[in-house]
Amino acid sequence: MYIWKFDPERQAFDLVKPIMMQQDRTAYYVIRDEHGDLMVRDSRGRECPAHFDFVEVIGMRFDREQFDPEKVDGLRTSTEPPVRSLFSLSPEDIASLREEMRRDGQWMRDKLRLKNSHL
């Protein structure tokens, strides 16, 4: 795993050890995980996949190659975010999941209503 911390004064990234993310939780980080996926972590601790062609932090774009020390990005066969991410779902998949959650929620409301009517 590789981790880079963004220095807003220099507008540049520095390679850091993982402990830095615990010590400075308000910084922006770029993380290349053990699968080779590139994630951006914002100052609130939220992580999302980096764009396939660049890394964007605070509205600034950086060349993705600087976060590829093992030169694996050129071997990728897809520009889609990692499968492990919800961001890779199609709009149809998301709509289907939302409908399933709506049905599950309605089912649970009905069960609770029935239970409360027997009390």
Score class of each variant (00 low, 15 high):
M1P: 14
M1F: 09
Y2S: 04
I3C: 11
W4T: 00
W4V: 00
K5D: 06
F6H: 15
F6E: 01
D7G: 10
P8D: 11
E9R: 13
E9Q: 13
A12H: 15
D14C: 07
L15N: 13
V16M: 01
V16F: 09
K17I: 01
K17C: 05
M21A: 15
Q22K: 15
Q23C: 01
D24H: 13
V30C: 05
I31M: 11
R32C: 06
R32N: 05
R32M: 15
R32E: 08
R32K: 14
D37M: 03
D37H: 12
L38E: 07
M39H: 11
V40G: 06
V40S: 02
V40E: 03
D42I: 05
D42T: 01
S43H: 11
S43F: 05
R44A: 09
E47P: 00
C48F: 08
C48N: 06
A50E: 04
A50K: 03
F54C: 07
F54V: 04
V55E: 03
V55Y: 00
E56P: 02
V57Q: 00
I58F: 02
I58V: 10
M60K: 11
R61P: 00
R61N: 05
D63P: 02
R64W: 02
R64V: 15
E65S: 13
Q66C: 05
Q66G: 02
Q66L: 03
Q66K: 09
D68G: 01
E70M: 07
E70V: 06
K71N: 15
V72E: 14
G74E: 12
L75P: 03
R76K: 15
T77K: 15
E80K: 15
P81T: 03
R84C: 09
R84P: 01
S85N: 02
S85R: 09
L86Q: 11
S88K: 09
L89Q: 11
S90R: 13
I94P: 04
A95G: 05
R98E: 15
R98P: 02
R98Q: 14
E99V: 00
E99T: 08
E100D: 09
M101A: 14
M101W: 09
R102P: 00
Q106C: 04
M108G: 00
M108H: 12
M108F: 13
L112H: 11
L112S: 07
K115T: 09
N116G: 02
N116D: 12
H118R: 13
L119P: 03
L119W: 06
